[in-house]
Design a protein around this nucleic acid. Sequence first.
DNA 1: GTCTATAAGTAGATAGAC
DNA 2: GTCTATCTACTTATAGAC
Lengths: 205, 205
Amino acid sequence: MVKDNSTEQKILDAARSVFIQKGLDGARMQEIANEAGINKALLHYYFRSKDKLFDRIFSEAFDTISTGLGDVFSRDIPLMDKFKNFIDLYIDVLSKNPHLPVFVFGELSRNPERLQKGIEKNMNNIMGPFFIQMMQEVNLGRLRPIHPAHLMLNMIGMLVIPYVARPMIAPILKQHLNIDFQDILDERKEVIYKFISDALIIDEK
Amino acid sequence: MVKDNSTEQKILDAARSVFIQKGLDGARMQEIANEAGINKALLHYYFRSKDKLFDRIFSEAFDTISTGLGDVFSRDIPLMDKFKNFIDLYIDVLSKNPHLPVFVFGELSRNPERLQKGIEKNMNNIMGPFFIQMMQEVNLGRLRPIHPAHLMLNMIGMLVIPYVARPMIAPILKQHLNIDFQDILDERKEVIYKFISDALIIDEK
DNA sequence: GTCTATAAGTAGATAGAC
DNA sequence: GTCTATCTACTTATAGAC
């Protein structure tokens, strides 16, 4: 993540930290300057305005959160392996960037025009073949029928929810059941894959 | 929702609308005053400060989003019926308040101390019996084993994700597959219930 | 209760020295 | 490139008339 110790890089690291924690409206240029160990004027020297600096951070975050959707689903492997790879990859990304979903979804909901154009073009080549592959498995009687869009929603929901709802759920689990949320997080990969396998795969006994 | 046309109620309606759309930091007292058809001074007359007004709105939102967790799970009915009731209730709440999850999760992630104390106490009476009921079904060989905490995460994730990620997913579905997101939303109740049924229930053929 | 006017503080952004 | 000092605009909050 950290390329070097140049001022620009220090600014980006500080901006990332502050923007993701406080959001566009809650972030202060002064705080970013402090965290970068410089002053406000230098921020404006490198990035003309708060909005421009934010755009940079948001684009980066958006790229991170849409990682793998392309790579994983375009590989020529069995469907369930795609799901497994997707789950593993996504949990790894999220565990390294736990606040990313709230940040991206929040800023996107207040300003949907931020949606990047790049993603959409790449999608065409991915979604088509993936949908066809799912239809085939269904027709072969190996998968219970479900619309691919719903399945993707289900997977993404199960993947993202622990990070999004953590401040709400972690205290409840701890207080009433003495469960550490981190233990739950550690089990998510296996649990989610098993859950969708059980839901999808038709047992042929 | 609207009790009467009193000034206080007009303020609360306006504040709810603005705060949920823009968040605490993005909201402006002037905008709330405009939307309520009054001036800023009157806002401070009714609610001493922006923070106090926000607290009121957030508490209300938090109550709404934690609706039913109690009612549904404490009723003495079969486990799968509880899930079905929970899904139906939650989707109804969300379809009437589609921006609530992003709002609550966002504000809570920036300020976890907002978590209400009330919820936690009620939880004790609910979670215990529900967990026991699940264990029994598992021991009877009717449900595939899964930790109740994971199951709840899975359900909540699948329920909430369409509303949270809508600005990101809706354009993709529309552009590449010509699917209206509203059609997906209309199918969620049935899809989610079927998905968890297929995942949980052991077929006894 | 409701208004106008204004105070007090803070934000992003720039000027200009070094 | 980096700094200090400052401008301008905006925001919450209050004072005080009606």
